[in-house]
Design a protein around this nucleic acid. Structure first.
Lengths: 247, 247
DNA sequence: GCGACAGAAACCGTATACAATGATGGCATC
DNA sequence: GATGCCATCATTGTATACGGTTTCTGTCGC
């Protein structure tokens, strides 16, 4: 249930409140937003987990007002679900939503590849290869959480290179939601992005072959999708003992 | 400082809580959100117009807290821009952003057409034809504001029929932003959506011809895009009381 | 006459207090 | 012993107060 926080250790995460500089308020909010968002994307906060305003306010050393703002932002990105008078919890995507997200990625990410192939510079290609390398490293060393986040970052950066900020933002949101989907419907040991898929993709892009990159991205996404167990779970009788055995 | 006597007296007076339904708080916020959003989409609030929290709070009879929540939501949809310590104003899209939005619409709306053609039912087709009719009527009677909103609604509803809620939401947001773009770069008398474009599109969809619908949608969007120009309009201070007088 | 500075007002950012509501657990009754 | 009701509690929703920053304006100096 509620993971009873050791209240004795409730230090504000990083010298906070009355410490002179107030100008960092905005940055601080941004940092807190990323903290929570990362925790969700890396599955340290699992779908369904409740996010109480008081608790978060205490952890980060700001008032509920700021937390609410952040929670609303996360809700609009569909990473958390806001239930009136019940508070916030990490979104648990349905199988339908998962299907929608992957169909959308198929359309947008694939559609972006030709433009990316046209625009990508050598520096950007190198940057992406570095990111792909870090994903591989994380996968090899078993850091699945890190791998998921890094992989999402790779796809997001790729979309940015298309030059269309609007579509890039869409892709980033879709990737975040994909992380949630992996948390619910993914199988351990079968993480979506295969080891060298990203590198193969980079080869097509660097050679300016947009069409092959597009086709490859399509297969890549299909492979991730195929690795999911998208059968609807029985909502009727969940095994509470198994689900909460870790608590 | 804390005059709690007021607190005890504050009780029923306004009758906000005594008027039976208390649950309308959420609905009220939703209604206010739509009021502002509609005012922006219909160009009663023009790009660049400042939206002061105090003024809005007074107009709608709620506190700044609620207004801020609504403003933040609008900001995440990119209808308003939030400048730190400067407050909110109606977003003035740049030419680049306009280009991005129309490129995105080109990709997503066109890509959705085959699926829409496959799924559309007779009832839905009729509903859309009715919407197209209302757009035409508004155009004929010179109600450009109404026409813009109705046209955006048409495109949004169309996307919903694809069955992909995620992409439909994207399209709705793109259409809202398109309204803003029309306000800044559009020419009077040359409203984006031509009179029978929507009807022609419906014919293709009803006959199940997804490919032709897709091609036609592409031309339709290109035509809107081509009708834009880069001349910027002046911005006058809006009279919030007048704009929301009907509330 | 023009520019710069200072004072004042306006306005946003944050925290806190209060009200309302859903949840939980105990108690009485059947 | 089980079920329904009631009281208490926990948690969110909303408003308001306070502090800081920006902006406007009026005056002074050049």
């Amino acid at each position: 249930m509620n993971q009873r926080q050791d209240a004795s250790q409730r230090r504000p995460a990083g010298g906070v409140s009355r410490t002179g500089k107030i100008g960092d308020g905005a940055e601080r909010h941004e940092a807190i937003y990323h903290s929570i968002s990362d925790a969700i994307i890396e599955h340290r906060l699992k779908p369904g987990a409740r996010l109480r305003e008081d608790a978060l306010a205490e952890v980060f050393g700001i008032s509920r007002t700021g937390i609410r703002k952040i929670l609303q932002r996360l809700a609009l990105e569909q990473l958390v679900t806001l239930t009136p008078r019940r508070g916030a919890s990490v979104t648990r995507p349905t199988a339908d939503e998962a299907q929608d997200v992957f169909d959308a990625r198929q359309m947008i990410e694939c559609g972006l590849m030709p433009e990316v192939a046209r625009r990508i510079t050598a520096d950007e290609a190198q940057e992406l290869r570095d990111m792909a390398l870090r994903v591989r490293q994380a996968l090899r060393s078993g850091e699945q959480s890190a791998a998921i986040k890094l992989s999402a970052a790779f796809h997001g950066r790729l979309a940015q290179i298309s030059g269309n900020a609007t579509l890039a933002e869409f892709v980033e949101r879709l990737c975040s939601r994909s992380s949630l989907i992996l948390a619910v419907y993914g199988n351990v040991g079968h993480l979506g992005c295969e080891s060298h898929d990203h590198d193969d993709l980079m080869s097509f892009l660097e050679s300016g072959n947009g069409e092959r990159a597009q086709a490859f991205m399509g297969r890549h996404l299909k492979a991730i999708e195929a690795s999911l167990s998208l059968h609807e779970e029985g909502v009727e009788a969940p095994d509470l003992f198994e689900i909460f055995s870790g608590y």
